[in-house]
């Protein structure tokens, strides 16, 4: 799977959300987002059966 282009994604997503971030904020938020992206990649790597569905209200 192609890796997410974190830098451009953060700029575009922030703009789309109506967030007016200055360069420093963008850098800080981008650094956090990059860490989140690394964690996301860990879980995206795991293939799950199609039968596994998300449960918005989790029932243990």
């Amino acid at each position: 799977m192609k890796r997410l282009d974190v830098e451009n994604f953060v700029i575009a997503a922030a703009r789309a959300q109506g967030l007016d971030l200055d360069a420093e904020q963008l850098q800080r938020v981008g650094a956090v987002f990059a860490r989140n992206a690394e964690l996301a990649e860990l879980m995206l790597e795991l293939d799950l059966p199609d039968s596994i569905e998300p449960a918005p209200v989790f029932e243990p």
Partner: peptide
């Protein structure tokens, strides 16, 4: 900044 990054998930 963690909250802002989270909002872009």
């Amino acid at each position: 900044d963690r909250l802002l990054a989270g909002a872009l998930t």
